[in-house]
């Protein structure tokens, strides 16, 4: 596929965005250069679009993704892939606060660590972090899976709703109403099937699968303290 090179530098992001959209429409693969950690790059990209960001990106890169394949060669700022519906985002470095926030579907793959509240309020899809997930990751997630291969920071899976947080490595501590449950062989196989295409499958791992303790699902005035633990 022919590759189009788009420079960011100090150009208005709107212009950069129009260039990316035009190249995507023409069916070309896209290399974005000189990104300078600018915000809102590659937001709302369509299915079939393939974009590679050569440097670090700022906030909300790949947000509202609608099926595009996005590669970020260095770090991503806050809210990478926020509210994405489908597609695939790879972050080669560190992903800042709230990567995959409120995502609905698709896959985000972070090769480094992630900041606090990875997968906050996520509704679906898979968020895979090869390093450690930061403080309060999975906070109030409603669905989907967060899979951390390098441990988890404090307050892990705090106030989790219906999502799952899978961790290998140390968990600094669990959040409110987060419960470790023993995964079944079928559940582990399901996670391995997610990791396999990323080249990360390893059947020797000791998984901890964290789910909601369901105490916060219904407000119980006699147990109000459970709501006031943070």
């Amino acid at each position: 596929m022919e590759e189009v090179v788009i420079e960011v530098a100090d150009r208005p992001v709107k212009e950069v965005h129009q260039d990316i959209q035009a190249a995507a429409k023409a069916g070309k693969s896209i290399l974005v250069r000189d990104t300078r950690s600018r915000h809102n790059l590659g937001v709302g990209l369509p299915e079939g679009c393939s974009v590679r960001f050569e440097g670090s990106v700022g906030y909300y890169c790949g947000g509202l993704n609608n099926g595009a394949t996005i590669k970020i060669e260095r770090n991503a700022g806050w809210g990478c892939g926020e509210a994405m519906a489908s597609g695939h985002i790879t972050v080669n470095g560190y992903a800042g606060m709230s990567v995959g926030a409120a995502m609905l579907g698709g896959t985000i793959h972070v090769r480094g660590d992630s900041g606090p509240r990875a997968g906050v309020a996520m509704k679906g899809g898979n968020l895979i972090v090869e390093g450690k997930i930061g403080y309060q990751s999975g906070f109030m997630a409603h669905g989907g899976k967060i899979i951390a291969l390098g441990g988890a920071g404090t307050s892990c899976a705090d106030a989790l709703w219906e999502g799952e947080v899978w961790v290998t490595g140390d968990i600094d501590d669990l959040g409110v109403d987060a419960v470790v449950s023993e995964p079944t062989a079928e559940q582990v196989a399901e996670v391995d099937a997610i990791l396999d295409p990323l080249g990360l499958k390893d059947t020797s791992r000791n998984w901890r699968r964290i789910v909601a303790g369901q105490r916060l699902w219904y407000f119980e005035s006699r147990d109000a303290k459970a709501w006031l633990m943070i």
Binding site: S37, S56, N75, G96, G115, P116, G134, G153, T154
Partner: peptide, 8 residues
């Protein structure tokens, strides 16, 4: 090299 002090 950029240091992100993102933690609590």
């Amino acid at each position: 090299s950029i240091i992100n002090h993102d933690g609590p």
